[in-house]
């Protein structure tokens, strides 16, 4: 009734009145559904406490943190800790190892699942396909600790299976984990072993959704299977590929702390020390909170810039992006 009266009084008033009406009905709706808002409170407390409060805690990277004075009581230190990190001899080594390991892992770990998914998609025998999937998914569920133990056992210079096999063709036992030059490959390829199967799930789902008319059209054009893969399958899953690529780029700086830390030994730290393991050692083991936070913040910012840039680039060159 009220809205009708207002209607006769001109357009401007209608707008204002409508806003008031919707606002009050908004509160009415919220009050009516208060139970939903009540439910969300506890999970939000978790989110804020363990995700957003730590973000505010980044402040200590700019302070001389002392346990006694607390975060807010500690003196400001400015960019001191950033500067000392950038100037430290470790900086270039850490950056080199972090980027080297993650870019190597990104390229290999990104291509393998696509190849496996395309191959699986060609298989017509449903049972064989299912069997391959079941087997290749399995390693994904192995814990990091177990995975690293397996790597250490298999690569052991004394009776590890890899050296036993190499011994068959007359190669002397190699101390793989004691040699820095093998570290990156061990890390990356064991990841491939563990995660490739599982990573195919999304691609296989995308491949199942490719328009069958396109295959028919390709058939009419006389395309062979390989050409169909290149001209129908790959373009069909391209949007998914891009989205996953952006996500992977975003994790370049934050990859596999757990695994790297466990694989480290004094002989290979030269190529295995990355920013995250360094933060842990300096910060928690060395109780150098402010310095380690600064290093961690540097890491997060680089990460953020990477994911942002990747998203922007993909937005420009293709229609797919994260946001």
């Amino acid at each position: 009734m009220k809205a009708e009266v207002v209607n006769q009084q001109g357009i401007k008033n209608v707008g204002i009145e409508k806003e008031i009406v919707t606002k009050s009905s908004k509160w009415k709706k919220i009050r009516k559904h208060w139970q939903l808002y009540f439910l969300v409170v506890i999970p939000l407390i978790f989110l804020i406490t363990f995700k957003y409060v730590p973000m505010a805690g980044i402040l200590i990277a700019f302070k001389d943190y002392s346990v006694v004075k607390g975060i807010f009581g500690s003196e400001w230190a400015g960019m001191k800790y950033f500067q000392s990190f950038f100037e430290s001899p470790n900086f270039s080594l850490l950056l080199k190892n972090t980027l080297g390991l993650s870019i190597y892992g990104l390229i290999v770990g990104f291509i393998c699942p696509i190849v496996l998914a395309l191959a699986l998609n060609e298989v017509q025998n449903g049972r064989f396909k299912k069997f391959v999937q079941t087997v290749t998914y399995a390693p994904y569920f192995i814990s990091t600790v177990i995975m690293v133990s397996i790597i250490i056992l298999f690569l052991s210079p004394n009776a590890g299976i890899v050296n036993n096999i190499l011994g068959l063709i007359g190669i002397e036992p190699i101390n793989f984990l004691g040699n820095p030059s093998y570290f990156k490959s061990i890390y990356v390829w064991s990841d491939v072993w563990q995660n490739t199967g599982y990573a195919t799930i999304i691609y296989l789902a995308a491949l199942a959704g490719v328009d069958t008319q396109l295959y028919e059209a390709a058939k009419v054009d006389g395309a062979n299977r390989f050409q169909k893969i290149m001209n129908v399958d790959l373009p069909g899953i391209f949007p998914i590929i891009i989205v996953l690529l952006i996500l992977n780029v975003g994790s370049i700086m934050s990859m596999g702390f757990e695994k790297i830390y466990l694989l480290q030994n004094p002989l290979n730290t030269n190529s295995s020390e990355v920013i995250s393991t360094y933060v842990y050692k300096v910060g928690l083991l060395g109780a150098n909170f402010s310095f380690a936070s600064a290093v961690g913040l540097f890491n997060s910012i680089v990460n953020f810039i990477l994911i942002f840039t990747a998203n922007k680039i993909s937005k420009r060159f293709s229609s797919s992006s994260l946001w």
């Binding site: 805690g57 200590i60 910060g283 928690l284 961690g296 953020f304």
Partner: peptide, 25 residues
């Protein structure tokens, strides 16, 4: 809330600040 959730996927406070929160609790 969705934005708040997704943002934590691309940016985080890092190890030390989280450790201090857990410690203060």
């Amino acid at each position: 809330i969705m934005i708040l959730l997704v943002f934590t996927m691309i940016f985080d406070g890092g190890l030390i600040p989280l450790y201090l929160v857990v410690k203060n609790l």
